[in-house]
Every structure is written in C-alpha cells, then in structure tokens.
C-alpha cells in the first residue's frame, strides 16, 4: 500500500481485504453511512469511542485488531448497555505490510463475529512513512441501554463491595514481555476479551450493581481511585484477595512494577451493594470469563477519598493515584 495511491487502489483494498473479512449486509450497501434498526422498547443509546495505538501490534493472546473491537465493546458494556454496532477507521503507515494488515483485519473480524457486534461502517487513510506506527485503529460503538439500568462512576457508596472478574495485569505484562522480548519462565498472555456477555449475566442475576469499569490504562489502582473520587468515598482493598497470576506477580516483582497499575483489557471491576456481594461473585464465577473472580474490597466513607490496601502484616498502605509515571519516591 502506498500513500497517495488513488481511489482505485483504495477501492481494491476495500474490495479484496476489508469486505470479505468484515463483510455484512450493512457494509455491503456501500454507502457513506449505514442505516440500522434499534431494539424495541424503552431505552437509550450509548456510544463510546476509542483510538487504539499499541506497540507491538501482535502480542501473546491478541493483536491490535481484536483489541480495537474488545476495547470499545467493553466501554459500551460497562455502561450496562448491549453493544449493537461498531465503526472502524484505520490509519495506515505507507509501506505497512499487506500481510500484517490482513492478519489484523482477520482478527478484528473474528472478534466482532464472536461478540456478535458487526462493523457497519469504516474508513481508511494512509499517511507518509514515519508519520504513523504501522497502523492505528479507531473504533466507535453504539449500544442499547434498557430502561432502569443506571451505572455510573459516582454511584459507589459506603458498604458496597468491590469485585474483579479475574487476575489483573496480564495484558500490560504480555505487552511488555513481547515489546522488550523478555523471556519469562511461563509465558504471559493478554486477557483481551469482550465483556458484554459477562456484564449481561451479572445484571441479569438481580444484583444491585452500582459501577462497572474495565481497568485499562493505569490498571486497577488508577481506576478505583477515579471511582473513589467520582463517588466521594474511600475504599479498602485486601492485597491477599486480589487475583494476580503467579507469572505476572513474579515478573512485576522483578521489574519493580506494581500489578495494581498494569493494564487489563478483559477484566471487569464491579461495585455492588454489600449485601449482594456473594450473589455477584457467584454470577461472575458462573460465566467462563469470570472463573477467576474475587471480592477484593469494600467501600467506606472517607472525606479524603483514599484507596487503601491491607498488606501482609496487617499494615495498610495507600494505593496512590499516580498523576504521572510511577516515579520512585524513596529518599
């Protein structure tokens, strides 16, 4: 693919690569936009967008293609909505290998198909060599939020329980090990996945859900701090209950990183009414994506909105809200 190649080349790319892989009735109409039906009944639309920039483009457990599908579906899903449609726009760097592009689009297509959420419109641009990093993918998702579901980062309240759907930090460490070609004893695989099925099961279980989030950049630590501040509450985590795969824990330990701040792409944070916590745990664990779920902490009143964690010897430390990098602070 070369930059500035005319409409014919682009049409060829679309015909030969995107259409067969992503193809569906909407795309097939070939219009500038797509016309789609909405579900019946009272409800609202949810829309979310995410630009995906990841290095390396291919990593254990996934690639930028499926990541761009999962990421946006998850943003829609944690609002409590059922994701319906996606759009995708690609920015390709001149000279990017067609074979790699094909792999990425195949992965997107498979992810969209598995999730049952079609890509209904798209766009592709090519930029000069050196002005992109292979490929960037922006996706936008539209979902349907039935009446009666109200999830928001400001709804956590004292007495609520905090759950995660599985081990944290896998995605961040998988990316790092691939990017830096670090050889760990057991390979670490990204957790990237679409969470709307898990969310649907949790909501269907009748649990009073207050907040859902997917802890992507900044990880569990940053996401919980955001929620604590939005809701004006404090949180207390139990370190021993936070699931971390041994390989991730060992790698973090050695590299001097904290899994609390490592990104996840297929994990759900659920803040639910305290009395429903066991029910919520059971609902998560009954779903294949939630077998590793755990109750990791609780919400309490705190005018300072601190997120704290009880550690080994009964000590409690503050889980910081880092504004920047993890700066060393020893003095």
């Amino acid at each position: 693919m070369s930059h500035g190649s005319g409409g014919r080349a682009m049409a060829q790319l679309i015909d030969e690569l995107f259409a067969p892989l992503l193809g569906n009735d909407y795309l097939a109409q070939g219009n500038d936009g797509s016309v789609m039906p909405l579900p019946d009944g009272p409800g609202r639309l949810v829309m979310a967008t995410d630009a995906h920039v990841v290095s390396p483009l291919f990593f254990p457990g996934g690639d930028i293609g499926c990541l761009s599908v999962h990421g946006t579906i998850n943003d829609v899903a944690v609002m409590g909505a059922k994701p319906l449609y996606l759009s995708a726009s690609f920015i390709l760097e001149e000279g990017f290998a067609l074979a790699d592009l094909k792999r990425i689009v195949e992965s997107m297509a498979a992810a969209a198909k598995e999730a049952g959420v079609p890509v209904v419109t798209g766009d592709t641009k090519v930029v000069e060599q050196g002005k992109g990093d292979g490929v960037f993918i922006s996706t936008t998702g539209v979902g349907w939020l039935p009446a009666g579901i109200e999830l928001s980062g400001n709804r956590a309240a004292a007495g609520d329980a905090i759950l995660v759907s599985g081990p944290i930090g896998d995605h961040g460490m998988a990316i790092m090990s691939q990017r830096e070609s670090l050889a760990f004893e057991s390979p670490i695989v990204s957790d990237t996945a679409a969470l709307h099925g898990l969310v649907a099961d949790l909501l269907a279980s009748g649990v009073q859900v207050k907040v859902l989030r997917d802890p992507t950049r900044g990880g569990l630590g940053t996401t919980l701090n955001e929620i604590a501040r939005q809701s004006g509450v404090g949180m207390m985590l139990q370190e021993a209950r936070i699931p971390v795969q041994p390989a991730v824990a060992a790698a973090c330990e050695f590299l001097g990183l904290d899994p609390l701040y490592c990104a996840c792409e297929g994990r759900l944070i659920a803040i639910v009414a305290g009395e429903d916590k066991d029910k919520a745990l059971a609902a998560l664990q009954a779903h294949p994506q939630g077998t590793g779920a755990a109750i990791v902490g609780s919400v309490h009143e705190d005018p300072h909105h601190f997120v704290q964690m009880t550690t080994g010897f009964g000590g409690k430390r503050i889980v910081d809200w880092l504004t920047g990098e993890q700066l060393p602070r020893i003095c």
């Binding site: 330990e253 050695f254 590299l255 001097g256 990183l257 060393p328 602070r329 020893i330």
Partner: peptide, 9 residues
C-alpha cells in the same frame, strides 16, 4: 540507573 525503580533501592 535504577533497574526496577524503587526496588533497586
């Protein structure tokens, strides 16, 4: 350089 940040300390 601090290989591992605070851990190196």
């Amino acid at each position: 350089q601090l290989p591992g940040g605070d851990r190196a300390a």
